[in-house]
Amino acid sequence: MKNILILTQFTLREAFSRKIFIMFSGVTLFILAVAALIFSFVSVDDFQGMVNVNGSQLEIFDKIVEVLKLVIVVPLFGIGIFLAIFSTSSFIPHMLEKGSIDLLLSKPVSRSQVILGKYFGGIAVVFINIAFLILGSWFLIGIKFGNWDPSFLLTIPTIVFAFAELYSLLILIGIITQSSVLAMMLTYLIYFIISPILSYRDNIFSFIESKTTEYILETLYYVLPKTQDLSTINSELAAGGSVPDWMPVILAFTFIILTIATSITIFSKKDY
């Protein structure tokens, strides 16, 4: 346990030595600052003036807050995870380089501890960044609109969880291929193309009436990461709703366990 903690800390440190994370945090701060600035110039009355014309005042006012939250969270899910994959994809290949893996494995740590340390370290890094941005926005919205709905904060674990699913895949590919480019490309492919397609497989079925295609797509959907579904859940939560369907969460969790277990098994057998 202590070893995992040391390795996690160390991974965090590695991440923060990278320019990409400094950039990430910089962008986060910048967005928050801009939002704060806009908020301080535009008063709540202006908003009310805008929406006074039609409908119930309160209802539309809530709508604005909701839209605002979505405007923050939806791009964050996309860009945040994109950057997170980009910057963590080299963790494993770097670790496996000659000269650093020899030294690491010569220490009294087991190979499963090494993998878990890297895994939690990567997640911790992303958690810190995402939590910082979401908490910051939540405070700004709360102060400005008096809307302190805590369900908005649930998007922190959701985004981090979606990353955790993809990161487990990055680790597996990294262990097998030792290539950060390959790990990154395959993960992007799943994240941006395959998962969205599989998520809307029902629409495809109505076009192609082939039982085989249906069967293949259905299987792939259950086997591969379901980040698109998690993105949907994320938006629901941001807008103050609840999780519409727990199935993708359970499947993603299973995926993580199996992928990490496979990574550990393969890593434990390899000669370095």
Binding site: N3, I6, L7, F10, E14, S17, E97, K98, G99, S100, D102, L103, L104, S106, K107, P108, V109
Partner: peptide, 25 residues
């Protein structure tokens, strides 16, 4: 262990390297 070829995290100082590997041991 002193490996044949060894790489240390380039962003650490000599002192930090020693501290990290001591802790890991």
């Amino acid at each position: 262990y002193l490996p044949e070829s060894h790489k240390y995290p380039p962003y650490l100082t000599g002192e930090q390297v020693l501290k990290f590997y001591a802790k890991l041991s």
